[in-house]
Design a protein around this nucleic acid. Structure first.
Length: 114
DNA sequence: TCTGTGACTTTGC
DNA sequence: GGCAAAGCCACAG
């Protein structure tokens, strides 16, 4: 049975698979879990990620490489600090060399999405 | 059941 | 190439 709840699980699972020092976009994750038009819902699911440890939400940004959800973090610039901790340069909520550190699960990750 | 909201994406001008 | 508006799906009240 594929409850809508499964959507959250898939999102969390993919986010956990994001390699160190890499970032991805909501749309990429949404598409990977089979819901390319539910990119917004992916971010919504990240709200629940606060309850789930091991979810590097800082590695998930919008398609422009902008830290749109940084305000949802505890600290004001906690998200940026976490990214810089991984060697990612962030200026004004904008990830530098975004396309270079961009990690697309649909391309880099195998087919296992369960 | 219906309405509103949102950590987005795409299209149009 | 940049800004504005519409679309879309899932969840909460």
């Amino acid at each position: 049975m594929k409850s809508s709840n499964d959507f959250y699980d898939r999102v969390f699972k993919v986010v956990r698979l994001i390699p160190y020092g890499r970032v991805t976009s909501y749309g990429a994750i949404a598409r990977y879990i089979g819901a390319p038009r539910s990119s917004r819902t992916v971010g919504y699911a990240m709200n629940a990620s606060h309850n789930v440890p091991g979810i590097p939400a800082q590695r998930v940004v919008n398609r422009n490489g902008l830290l749109t959800g940084k305000h949802h973090f505890q600290g004001t610039n906690l998200m940026q600090q976490l990214l810089e901790s991984e060697g990612i340069t962030v200026i004004e909520d904008q990830i530098q060399n975004f396309k270079e550190i961009y990690w697309d699960p649909n391309l880099e990750l195998p087919d296992f999405k369960e």
